[in-house]
């Protein structure tokens, strides 16, 4: 939370504040709010009844379920990884640390087309491990495991990226104190570190989850697009759109947008309720 700045010399003049706020709001309105409004406007064009009908339709429900299943597997996996990675990056100094951080960032910059393709090259029938897996009757791509793997790849850096700067900034003094006083490593982590990073962690998880549910490009490559079976919500949106069923397409899309908004509002509410505590951990 921003500290209270009462000194007049530290304040921007009113005209500048107004100008900057106006600029920021105009920019956000143009780039974020308008597309969002467009999604809801299209979704509700034929009224609430049509909107609702599109959401309770069988394939839409299947897509929503599948999306949740994928998120349930991929988000915790990246949560554990993010905590482990930020622990070793923030608490220790070692050679190749910049390289490690760069590798963690890498999935951000890999094109979604490629993130799907690599799993096809690995697990596809002509891939490195495909023939072996086929012989065992194990299906990875064009089934749930492939969707989970591609989603994990795409959302890989989110938790780690959120935690690393936070833990670097907090330093290791409290952990050192706990250890000197005789706490075990795990105790230190659960009692000292976790309470300090919980907001950053929560935030990272929320972003990771939002992205996991919304990913389109990578899962599109490994899905197989079997209606009602391997279509996640973003893929179902594309299908409906291609069927010229614009209302239903945008209705499902609006659920994803709402999901995003709900998680973000939840985050905001938590921050607001525990704002003081949060500020305290931030400035420790």
């Amino acid at each position: 939370m921003p500290a209270d700045r009462s000194a007049a010399a530290l304040r921007d003049p009113a005209w500048m504040r107004g100008l900057l706020i106006a600029t920021a709001l105009a920019f956000l309105a143009l780039f974020l709010l308008l597309p969002l409004v467009a999604v809801f406007a299209e979704a509700l064009r034929r009224g609430v009844a049509a909107y609702w009908a599109a959401l309770v339709e069988e394939d839409a429900v299947a897509a929503i379920k599948l999306t949740l299943i994928v998120a349930v597997f991929s988000v915790p996996a990246n949560l554990v990884f993010g905590v482990a990675a930020s622990w070793c990056v923030a608490k220790f100094d070692f050679r190749g640390k910049n390289l490690l951080i760069t590798l963690i960032d890498l999935p951000f910059s890999v094109s979604p087309v490629i993130s799907g393709l690599i799993y096809v090259l690995l697990f596809g029938l002509n891939g490195l491990m495909g023939p072996f897996l086929k012989a065992q009757g194990i299906q990875i791509i064009f089934a749930v495991p492939g969707l989970v793997l591609a989603t994990i790849f795409v959302t890989f850096p989110f938790v780690a990226r959120e935690l690393i700067p936070l833990m670097q900034e907090q330093g290791s003094e409290e952990e050192e104190a706990a250890l000197v006083l005789g706490a075990s490593g795990w105790q230190t982590f659960w009692r000292v570190t976790l309470p300090n990073i919980k907001w950053g962690l929560l935030y990272g998880v929320l972003l990771c989850n939002a992205r996991a549910m919304g990913e389109f490009g990578a899962v599109s490559v490994v899905s197989g697009h079997i209606r009602g079976y391997t279509n996640t919500m973003p893929l179902h949106v594309e299908i409906l759109y291609n069927e010229y069923n614009f209302v239903a397409a945008f209705a499902v899309a609006s659920v994803l947008a709402m999901l995003a908004l709900v998680t973000l509002v939840a985050k905001t509410v938590l921050e607001w309720r525990f704002g003081a505590e949060l500020a305290a951990t931030r400035h420790k």
Partner: peptide, 25 residues
């Protein structure tokens, strides 16, 4: 706070939906 929450929208909105919405706009 609402504006603050809105900033993360591009992470959450499926890219295809964003593309369709932007091209419609």
């Amino acid at each position: 706070r609402l504006v603050d929450a809105l900033v993360d929208l591009p992470f959450a909105l499926p890219t295809a939906v964003a593309g369709i919405a932007l091209s419609a706009l």
